[in-house]
Each structure stands twice: as C-alpha cells, then as structure tokens.
C-alpha cells in the first residue's frame, strides 16, 4: 500500500525526470525554424547571427523578354518542358496611348516574346505609350505564408532564408499554393507535390549562381548574400531605390526590383 506522502514524492520525482528530456527538443529538432540541415536551430542561429541571407535583384530596365531564364530554369530543375507551369516566368506589360494595360506571359515566356501581340491583340507601334518586361520568381519571403499554412511542415525555411519543399513529405493538399500571394507555387506534373523556385538551392550552396542568373545575357537577374557588406546585390538594395512586390501582405519578400512600374501586378 502506497502512502500519500510516498505518492506525492514519487509524482514529483517522476515529473522532474520527465522534465529533462522535455528541455531537449529545442536543441535536437533539426529543421525547426532557422535550422540548417542537421544543425540544431538554436546553435545555427547563434553561429548565423549575420550569416548568409540569399537575396535576389531584378533590374527590369535590362530585361528584354528573351526567355532564356525560363528555359534554363526548366532544364536545370527538371520541370517538364511543355507543361504550362514554371518556377520562374517573365511578364510583358504594354500600356497603350488610351491608358489600357495589356499584360501577359504566354508559356511563361519560355520562348520569349517574338511577336508584338500582347494578349493576342496586334498593336501598332504608334499606339504604345510604354512597354516593359518583368521577370518573376519566388520571393523567398522573410515571413512566408506558404510555410505557415503547410499542415505537415513539408515546406520550410532554411536559416539562409530560402523556402524549400520536401517532396517526400508533401501530401499535396495545395494549401501553400493558395496561400502564396505571388502565384509562384504549383503542383509538379511528375511528382505531384508542391513545387516552387528555390533560387536553385543546389547550386547556390555550392558557390554557383542560380540557373536563371547564369542564363540571363543582360544581367537583369542577380543573386547574392545580402548580409555580406561586399556583395553587389546587397549594396544595390541598400544604396539604390528598390521596391518589392505586394508588400501589403506583410510577407517581407526578398526579391528586389529596380525600375518597377505601378502597372505591375
């Protein structure tokens, strides 16, 4: 027969014993927020106080809409070439003299813009007020809504700021696709899991540039570690007049644009 005193004693001891492993999870959950593959999050956070933060810069003034970036991306990341989805795309905006805004991105601009036919309308040169191209890709948001809504944690943010998808764990509910205000996500036609641009994480972590950056003949796309004071991308973001897309959503996008116009969606 156990006495009341013993019962209380054993209970307290039991709780104390349970408390020891309870204190451990913050150090051994590898991919909790901020964690880098296998590195405990708290440790990596302290090592990474001013570590890498990948950022992207798009100079829309330099883009000519050739579509090389889209081609390169599709090939590098094995997105079926003819599927009507792409990790990156280029939009064409044409503002006519009477104030209409025509915008399109046929085949994600994979084949470039060859004809002067925005939205299938043949325009005369003299009717056009201004026209420009805007490349789009995942913004690798500081506060990514897609990561927030994933019910199984299959999409996550690395400590260097890139949002990745675990194809082995994604259940394919599509909630992340719905949550992204930029429409960058889609279902991979082969793997049937959520798919998105990851700045070519497999390349940038090995010292290479993203495929689209390498493919761009005009230097309209740049990638860099914006925490590095000597990095060109970081310098331009700090010193020049840059803007981001849809900042009203509070996602803190990390793809910065030079020369963005108010017509851009």
């Amino acid at each position: 027969m156990i006495t009341r005193r013993d019962f209380i004693k054993y209970s307290i001891q039991g709780i104390a014993a349970l408390a020891i492993p309870m204190a451990a999870p913050p150090f051994n959950s590898p991919l909790s927020k901020g964690g880098l593959r296998g590195v405990p999050s708290k440790l990596s956070a302290s090592q990474n106080a001013k570590g890498i933060r990948w950022g992207f810069l798009v100079d829309t003034q330099k883009c000519v809409g050739c579509g090389f970036c889209v081609k390169a991306c599709k090939k590098e990341n094995k997105i079926p070439y003819d599927a009507n989805v792409s990790r990156t795309w280029v939009e064409r905006y044409v503002v006519t003299k009477d104030g209409n805004v025509l915008a399109d991105s046929p085949k994600s601009a994979r084949d470039g813009f060859i004809k002067n036919d925005p939205m299938g309308i043949n325009l005369k040169k003299e009717d056009i007020e201004k026209a420009f191209f805007v490349p789009k890709l995942c913004n690798q948001c500081e506060n990514p809504p897609c990561v927030q809504v994933c019910p199984v944690g299959a999409t996550y943010q690395t400590s260097d700021g890139v949002v990745l998808v675990d194809r082995k764990w994604c259940i394919g509910c599509g909630y992340c696709i719905m949550a992204c205000p930029y429409g960058v996500r889609f279902f991979h036609p082969v793997y049937h899991t959520a798919e998105k641009c990851n700045f070519c994480y497999h390349r940038i972590t090995k010292g290479m540039k993203s495929a689209c950056v390498t493919a761009c003949p005009f230097g309209a796309r740049l990638i860099g570690n914006i925490n590095d004071p000597n990095d060109e991308v970081g310098r331009i973001i700090r010193n020049e007049r840059v803007s981001v897309l849809k900042d009203e959503f509070g996602t803190k996008p990390q793809v910065y644009y030079l020369g963005l116009s108010k017509e851009v969606r």
């Binding site: 809504v149 199984v152 944690g153 259940i171 394919g172 509910c173 909630y175 279902f187």
Partner: peptide, 28 residues
C-alpha cells in the same frame, strides 16, 4: 473529400503524425 483531393492520399496520415500547428489544417 480531403483525402480524395490530396495529390498523395496515402500520405494523409502525416497530418496526424507530424502536425505543423501554425497551419489551420493541422488542427484537423
């Protein structure tokens, strides 16, 4: 309906096994 909608219906149980609680669906 959710199970039928999933692209990977057999992974449906992951919602219970590894719930990511910032997601509304994880509360399911």
């Amino acid at each position: 309906p959710i199970v039928l909608h999933l692209q990977h219906p057999f992974r449906g149980a992951y919602v219970f096994m590894t719930p990511h609680f910032t997601s509304a669906i994880a509360a399911f």
